[in-house]
């Protein structure tokens, strides 16, 4: 251990001087707000001074952005219009689904633009606590189910008879086997935040399959990409709308259609997933605030094609959220004008 010269005091002096200079700059030299400042409250905070004179002041809108690109497309277009047409300050927060709901009672989150079911969260935050409310459908139709690459269906068309006889899948179990599924076929489940009935369906249909969790959407997508590259069979839990499904050709293996109550016993399900009519959820505070943004979000409604177009511009064509939104807004005035308060 060596003793050495004290260097602390010059260090302190130097830092002190910087602090004074910095605060001096902050005090008067540069009064213009910074456009590139790290956002204080996190997320891609950005403000627009374009005010719409005829409407009530919009204020700040906190939009949760859940981690899939389709949602990012929703948020891009809604955020762009709120900012540029209604003069709102839009704060986007990158959160997963559950955390987004947690933000309703505290005002950290005003709106979720694409909600996939989540009956447990709705029961707590909407029905019991009354801190959130349904703001109508966003027009996107979600389909969850089991998917295989198109080349596999072309080679084995009888797999589509699963709609009437799910046990046909047992014929192919060996082909879907991987190092993770033992002697069974593998159904690759995705992101842990997505709803899954797969184990119940395996039990209910009597399938010789094992659920393997990829752990994230990226892991599933990468697995699909690799399988398609190698023309190797793969069976995945997947869903549309989804930007990635436009890059690879996947076919939905339908099971006997969903009927109300058929998925009641979680461990024994003899039907496919229900169709999801994706909806918007807003905090009660926001809904009663009188903000024109609430009216706008309530009216926001578009199609899977709209969403996929914007999502593809963001992911494949390298556009920023705002650029992709602007492109869509410029091309579809009649659609979004119907959302205006």
């Amino acid at each position: 251990m060596s003793l050495h010269r004290r260097t602390l005091s010059p260090a302190a002096a130097l830092m002190g001087t910087f602090a004074i200079i910095l605060s001096a700059c902050g005090g008067g030299a540069t009064p213009t707000p910074s456009s590139s400042a790290p956002a204080a409250s996190g997320g891609a905070a950005s403000a627009s001074a374009v005010a719409a004179a005829s409407l009530a002041p919009c204020g700040t809108v906190n939009i949760a952005v859940n981690p899939w690109v389709g949602y990012e497309a929703d948020a891009a277009v809604v955020g762009y219009l709120l900012q540029n047409k209604l003069g709102c300050t839009v704060v986007k927060k990158n959160l997963d689904e559950q955390t987004s709901w947690q933000g309703f009672p505290t005002g950290e989150v005003d709106a979720i633009l694409e909600n996939w079911g989540h009956e447990d969260l709705a029961a707590k935050y909407i029905t019991a606590d009354k801190v959130a409310q349904d703001a109508g459908l966003d027009g996107n139709e979600g389909v969850i189910g089991w998917y295989v690459p198109k080349f596999f269906v072309d080679a084995n068309p009888d797999i589509l008879t699963a709609k009437t006889d799910p046990t046909i899948l047992n014929k192919y179990a060996a082909q879907f086997k991987t190092s993770e599924s033992g002697d069974k076929g593998q159904i690759l489940d995705g992101d842990p935040s997505f709803v899954t009935n797969d184990q119940g369906m395996i039990n209910g249909f009597g399938l010789n399959y094992k659920v393997v969790y990829s752990g994230s959407e990226a892991a599933s997508n990468k697995a699909i990409q690799a399988a398609v590259d190698a023309q190797r069979p793969i069976l995945v839990y997947y869903y549309t709308p989804n930007w990635f499904s436009s890059k690879v050709d996947l076919v939905h293996i339908e099971f006997p259609a969903w009927t109300p109550g058929c998925d009641k016993v979680a461990t024994n399900i003899k039907c496919d997933y229900p169709p999801y009519h994706l909806n918007k959820v807003v905090s009660t505070k926001f809904a009663t605030s009188g903000s024109p943004a609430f009216t706008f979000i309530s009216k926001f409604k578009w199609t899977n094609d709209d969403q996929n177009a914007v999502a593809a511009d963001i992911t494949s064509n390298g556009m920023s959220d705002d650029d992709a939104a602007k492109k869509w807004v410029d091309a579809n005035p009649s659609v979004w004008q119907a959302w205006m308060p």
Binding site: D96, E97, Q98, D120, L121, K124, E180, D191, P192, S193, V212, Y213, S214, G215, S216, A219
Partner: peptide, 17 residues
């Protein structure tokens, strides 16, 4: 990334109520 077991349990605990 597909390890299942405790790691996945922790991740899903963060994601689903």
């Amino acid at each position: 990334v597909g390890a299942q077991a405790l790691g996945f349990d922790v991740v899903s605990g963060f994601s689903q109520r």
